[in-house]
Amino acid sequence: MSLPKPMMRGLLAKRLRFHLPIAFGLAIGAALTFGVGEPRKRAYAEFYKQYDSTKEFNAMREAGIFESVRPSGE
């Protein structure tokens, strides 16, 4: 009993028919991700330009969100 001969003729074309749509799909997905990611990065950068973490912390402390930090009035 012998092993069947491997298919050599047309092997590249067969592989390309399978892998080429996958490659295009991944490339389009990466382009869309980049297109969506950049505006989001700009929005975060704009938010943190005006964000004051100390002011936010004091507001949360006064609201009683933290159990280990007492409001400054007590």
Rank of each mutant, 00 (worst) to 15 (best):
residue 26 L to Q: 13
residue 59 A to K: 02
residue 49 K to D: 09
residue 8 M to D: 01
residue 66 F to K: 03
residue 43 A to N: 06
residue 56 E to S: 10
residue 67 E to L: 03
residue 10 G to P: 05
residue 11 L to Y: 00
residue 5 K to F: 09
residue 17 R to H: 04
residue 43 A to C: 01
residue 67 E to H: 01
residue 16 L to V: 14
residue 54 T to Y: 05
residue 69 V to N: 00
residue 51 Y to R: 08
residue 21 P to R: 13
residue 45 A to K: 11
residue 60 M to E: 14
residue 74 E to Y: 01
residue 8 M to R: 02
residue 4 P to G: 08
residue 34 F to I: 13
residue 7 M to T: 15
residue 28 I to R: 12
residue 34 F to E: 14
residue 48 Y to D: 07
residue 63 A to E: 13
residue 70 R to F: 00
residue 19 H to A: 08
residue 67 E to F: 00
residue 43 A to L: 08
residue 67 E to A: 04
residue 4 P to H: 05
residue 50 Q to H: 13
residue 55 K to I: 04
residue 48 Y to G: 04
residue 62 E to S: 10
residue 25 G to D: 11
residue 11 L to A: 10
residue 71 P to F: 03
residue 37 G to R: 02
residue 73 G to K: 03
residue 53 S to E: 14
residue 54 T to W: 05
residue 68 S to Q: 08
residue 51 Y to G: 05
residue 44 Y to I: 14
residue 30 A to M: 13
residue 28 I to G: 11
residue 10 G to V: 06
residue 21 P to H: 13
residue 26 L to Y: 06
residue 30 A to L: 15
residue 7 M to G: 12
residue 7 M to W: 04
residue 73 G to W: 06
residue 18 F to C: 10
residue 12 L to M: 07
residue 66 F to A: 07
residue 68 S to D: 12
residue 28 I to M: 15
residue 3 L to Q: 10
residue 15 R to Q: 12
residue 3 L to W: 04
residue 42 R to W: 13
residue 4 P to R: 08
residue 71 P to G: 10
residue 11 L to W: 00
residue 54 T to D: 12
residue 45 A to T: 11
residue 27 A to H: 08
residue 38 E to T: 13
residue 30 A to V: 13
residue 11 L to Q: 02
residue 35 G to L: 15
residue 12 L to T: 04
residue 43 A to S: 10
residue 71 P to R: 11
residue 36 V to L: 15
residue 58 N to V: 02
residue 73 G to C: 01
residue 39 P to F: 02
residue 1 M to N: 06
residue 44 Y to N: 09
residue 25 G to W: 05
residue 49 K to R: 14
residue 28 I to S: 14
residue 63 A to R: 11
residue 70 R to E: 02
residue 13 A to V: 00
residue 73 G to M: 00
residue 61 R to S: 01
residue 16 L to H: 08
residue 10 G to A: 09
residue 20 L to G: 03
residue 38 E to A: 13
